[in-house]
Simulated scan of single mutants.
Amino acid sequence: MPIPMDYQHASEEFERFLRLVVERSGLTTRNQAYTTAQSVLLTFRRRLEMRDAIRFAGVLPPVLRAIFVADWDTQEEPRAFSSHAALIEEVRSLRRDHNFSPDSAIADVAFALRACVDGAEFDRLLATLPPGAADFWRD
């Protein structure tokens, strides 16, 4: 069997995703976009039970899937979805001195992510996750 296309082109797709984050957010570098995207993904992951997080990871492109599951403390209890301000503060808490995530970071990453996944599959999955999950990914 040949290597699946999403694996063959994983780096290109990830670079496209980062470009979309930069363009949408007004950030200036791919490093800033990476930190923003990583922190948004981790903020979301902290609100899911492991079973749901694994299902969510399954709809992500390969590099984003790897970022989503990397360094996971699987013993951490899921957190509740909270106010936008609290979620953005959590996004900004990752590498605080090097994190330039704007107030729109979650929406910016959601926009870029939606451009890189099967939208119908993504929405079907979000509808099965806890309340607050679909709202988190609105762009």
Rank of each mutant, 00 (worst) to 15 (best):
P62S: 04
V63P: 00
A66G: 12
I67R: 03
I67F: 07
F68C: 02
V69L: 15
V69I: 14
A70Q: 09
A70H: 12
D73N: 15
D73P: 02
T74E: 10
E77L: 10
A80S: 14
F81P: 02
F81K: 04
S82H: 06
S82M: 07
S82L: 07
S83Y: 10
H84L: 14
H84G: 03
H84F: 06
A85N: 07
A85V: 08
A85T: 12
L87W: 04
L87C: 09
L87D: 09
I88D: 00
I88G: 00
E90T: 12
V91P: 00
R92P: 01
R92E: 00
R92N: 02
R92T: 00
S93Y: 01
S93C: 07
L94D: 05
R95G: 05
R96W: 03
R96P: 00
R96S: 09
H98M: 04
H98A: 03
H98I: 01
N99K: 00
N99Q: 04
F100D: 00
F100A: 01
F100R: 01
S101K: 01
S101V: 03
P102E: 06
P102F: 12
S104Q: 09
A107T: 13
A107D: 14
D108I: 05
V109E: 06
F111D: 04
F111S: 03
F111A: 13
A112P: 11
L113E: 04
L113F: 07
A115T: 09
C116V: 03
V117G: 07
V117H: 10
D118P: 08
G119K: 10
G119A: 10
A120P: 01
A120K: 13
A120H: 10
E121F: 06
E121K: 11
E121T: 13
F122R: 02
D123K: 15
D123A: 14
R124D: 14
R124C: 11
L126D: 05
T128Y: 06
L129G: 09
L129W: 13
P130Q: 13
P130I: 14
P130S: 10
P131Y: 12
G132Q: 08
G132M: 14
A134Y: 05
A134Q: 11
D135T: 07
F136Y: 15
